[in-house]
Design a protein around this nucleic acid. Sequence first.
DNA 1: TTGTACGCGTTATCAT
DNA 2: ATGATAACGCGTACAA
Lengths: 343, 343
Amino acid sequence: MSDITIKDIAKICGVGVSTVSRAMNNHPDINPATKERIMQIIEEHNYIPNNSARNLKRTESNTIGLLMKGIGNPFFQGMFDFFEEMLSRKNFSFVLQRVGFDEDEVNVALELEKEKKLKGIIFLGGQIREDMKAFDMLSVPYVLCTVGWKEERQAPNLVAIDDRKESFKMVDYLCSLGHRRIVIITSAEEEMSVGNLRYEGYRQALDKNGIPFDPSLVCFMKPELESFSAENGYAVTQELLASGTEFTAIFAVSDMVAIGAGKALLEAGKRIPQDYSVAGFDGLSLTHFFHPSITTIHQPREEMVKAAVKMLLDMIDGRDCRRIQIFEAQLEIQESTGKAKAS
Amino acid sequence: MSDITIKDIAKICGVGVSTVSRAMNNHPDINPATKERIMQIIEEHNYIPNNSARNLKRTESNTIGLLMKGIGNPFFQGMFDFFEEMLSRKNFSFVLQRVGFDEDEVNVALELEKEKKLKGIIFLGGQIREDMKAFDMLSVPYVLCTVGWKEERQAPNLVAIDDRKESFKMVDYLCSLGHRRIVIITSAEEEMSVGNLRYEGYRQALDKNGIPFDPSLVCFMKPELESFSAENGYAVTQELLASGTEFTAIFAVSDMVAIGAGKALLEAGKRIPQDYSVAGFDGLSLTHFFHPSITTIHQPREEMVKAAVKMLLDMIDGRDCRRIQIFEAQLEIQESTGKAKAS
DNA sequence: TTGTACGCGTTATCAT
DNA sequence: ATGATAACGCGTACAA
């Protein structure tokens, strides 16, 4: 079968290869009649141009690369559609490229950029590193979207929320409900993961509210279970309950973890929020459907996507633009949080 | 910066291009010393080979394509890892290719196959079509994994469950609990979607249990909301409650829909399973974390992935193998289903 | 062990 | 409006 090339089509049509190329690529200077004839032959013969050859030869392509670290992260669900809509409206197409958990996203980007002659790149997820110099090797504009960051100067081309501030907001809210023994479930300590940043916000909120920090209230996700998963929150919370540690609220650094934590509490016969308050982070729509629905920090995903795309296109077109956009997230109070029990 | 090619590297090293090529591709006949030197120069200059050129020139590539219709479907989460593990163990790499909701997966496959010189293709999701001839245009082996199918003869190279049978299993189980007015929430009628197949199983189970079919118990997902989403199940169930229709159980054709349905019931002050039983389909781990946890049909995803990969590799190697593997799913009874109320 | 030269399938350039 | 031809960057016979 197949391996029919542009030459074959040209031969069959009795024209030169360049005419066939013109027909396929909607070039202006071609006779509509011959174009039609060629396209029909192409159709009949199921000719499929070879993209490798095209990419090799083409000087440019209206393609932007979307690199996701942690595809499968529910937080990213639904962001595809926004990207697709935004980009196609501007006549761009995009390639989705998964970045493995231990892969270096810059290397992946470097390859893809050359292979596909990308016009720009959007990085989704992951976190800013100490050494941002690697990104300088990219020869096209890029934007970091929803990645963890610590200091603005580290990060050019950033669209994100302020994880510390939002985390502070949540914990401060819990304090305002009278909670003084607030458990945090966070990720194992790595540099600058969002877990760490959110943990810092937790500490700051305690400070502000004059609550002494108690290390026994800090729980880390289990490394043997999937990070940021409901399973993890569930296991951690079961252990917490078994330990006899006293607390009145749990703040999980992601909604899925909060869901797992909530389940462990309910299953142990505890009531939410009467006995314990539970709070998450991210604003997944899933929080609405847990019962009780879970108080969370709602990240404005659609706006962030739009901002990231706009920023990227501005950079591509050489337009001037703000290079850092920190979005405000919303404290979404739902059913899972309430006044602390009198102690 | 960039656009440094293999020639440049060759020049810098004072060797021919083929030697550089040999160094990069781990060819045996090369002096280890020169290889080392070349690799170092490559490193220093951040040289990245152009994949388009490689793919164009290469005759084969141990790559298999993974085409997913409906990335973002939570059912697919975690299947990546299984694929990656299985394939890398056999020294294959894979490219993940998203297929848009209205794109034709065969066309996408055709392009990718040529571009990447694929060794094989796995299609994930979607459903079998009336006309399977399109797939004949593919020039490499392929396997359909977890797609809806109606008759075995339609579908060569299939790894899936029997949606009708499993759906029957669930509804039969509900009947055995004494339920006679069982609502089904299914997808709007399209040809051969899994929703349809699961609906057929529902009908058959009613028949077997001597329960007359009542059209007022058939609910369709709202087309204006996302298909198979919790939002959809929630909205449909609210409407159902408002309609005053009598029923004692809800069978949703997917877990997410069941979660939405459950929330609507709980929010209306109903108890699960004392007032209403709720059942889902797919076996998402999320069903464990809803409260009450949701009875579901658990699809053996890991085994199906393994079977699909094995089948594909067997075909690639020209080995003989069963071309259709229908897996048994497990009725996973959890907290959301119980005996029907006395009427 | 290494280098030269050709070709992969396409688009861009320059003729006509 | 169309055709011939030179690249694009790399792998690989083949010669050395």
